[in-house]
Design a protein around this nucleic acid. Sequence first.
DNA 1: CCTACCGATCGGTAGG
DNA 2: CCTACCGATCGGTAGG
Lengths: 203, 203
Amino acid sequence: MPVARAESDAPDVRTRILGAATRLFAARGFDATSLSEIADAVGIRKPSLLYHFPSKDDLLSGVLDALLSHWNDLLPRLLSAATSGYEQFDRVTVELVAFFVTDPDRARLLFREMLDRPEEMKARLLSYFRPWVRLLADSIAKGQEQGRVRPDVDAEAYVLHVIHLVVGGIAVREVMDVLLDGDRFVNEMLRLARASLFLSPAR
Amino acid sequence: MPVARAESDAPDVRTRILGAATRLFAARGFDATSLSEIADAVGIRKPSLLYHFPSKDDLLSGVLDALLSHWNDLLPRLLSAATSGYEQFDRVTVELVAFFVTDPDRARLLFREMLDRPEEMKARLLSYFRPWVRLLADSIAKGQEQGRVRPDVDAEAYVLHVIHLVVGGIAVREVMDVLLDGDRFVNEMLRLARASLFLSPAR
DNA sequence: CCTACCGATCGGTAGG
DNA sequence: CCTACCGATCGGTAGG
C-alpha cells in the first residue's frame, strides 16, 4: 500500500531553483546573474520563478538561508561530539574543509557576500557566528594552559583566519591549482592551520 | 621662469578615471558598477569617459594593468635587496601586507578577478607570477636545507597560500574586524605565516 | 506555470 | 569634453 503524499515528493521546484541560483550566483555574482538565466537552468520562465521567490533579493535570502542553516545543524553536533579540549578545534577545521571541498560554490558565494554586502555580513558575524568563535577560542585557550598550543596565538583572530583560510582558499583553489598538482593546495592549507596552532612535538 | 609644459600636469584625467574605477570596481564589482557612476565620481559625462577608454572592458584592463605594473616595479627591487636566503621570503610577505593594507581596494579587486574571471587569472598566474613563485619557493627550500625552515612545508603551495592569506585577508579585513580591535587580525596574519614556515626557536 | 508587456537602466554611438 | 539618442536587457507586473 503506497504511502499517502500531499503534493510534492521528487526534487522540489523550489529546491531546484535554489540550487541553480547558488551555482550561478557563485560563478558570476549576484548582479551579473539574471533571473532569466536561473529560470532557463531550471527549465521554467522568469515569471514562474518570481511566483516562488517574489523578488531577486528574496531569492538571494533563500540561497543564503539554505547555506547557513546547514551549518546551524552541523556545527553543534560537531562540537558536542568532540570530547577533548583543543582537539575540538582541529576536528572543526577538518570538517570545514570537507564541507567546502565538496561544494566550492558555497565558498565562492560566501566570499562574494563578504565583498558585496560587508555590512550584512558583519551583522551575521556578530549575531550568528560570534558565539561559535568564542567557544572555539576558549578551547584554544585551554590548549594553551595545557602547554600544547603555542602561547603566542591570538585565539579569536586565529579562528577568523582559519575560517578565511578555508572559505577563501577553496573559493580560489581552481585558480591556484594551475601551478600545483593533486591535493597539494588543500593539504598545505591544513598543514598551515595546524603548524601555526600547535607547538612542535619535539625538536 | 616657468618650465614649459605641453598639455597635462596636474592629476591627469586618465589617472583620475582609473582611480575612481578601481575604487568602485573593488567595492561593488565590475558588473554592478555603471560607467555613469564612474563618470560622476570623476566629474565628467559617460561619453567623455568613453573617449579615454573606448569600452568598459578597456577600462578594466587599464585598472588591472596599473595594479600589476606597480608590482612589476616593486617585486624585483625587493628580491634583489634582500640578501640572505630564507629571510627573503619574510621580507616579501611584510611588504605584501604593507602594500595591500595601504590600499585594500587593490586586494578586493584582485580577489574579485579571481572569482569573476578565473581563466584570465590562471593565464596571468602562469605567465606572470610563476617565475616569482618559483624563485620564492627556491629560497624556502634553501632554508629547509639549512634546517631553519620546517621540513614538511610544501614550498610552492605555501607561497600561494601566503599570497591568498594576505590578498584575501585584507580584502575581508573590514568584515572580520567587527569581532576584533586594533591590528589583531593583521598581526595574527603575519604570525600565522611565520609560525607555519620557521621551526620553533627552542622549546 | 505561461504570454505579453512595463519603465528603467545599461554600454555604446552620432555628431559636433 | 558635451547633448541627444540607440537597441538590448534588466527586474518585475498584469492577467489568465
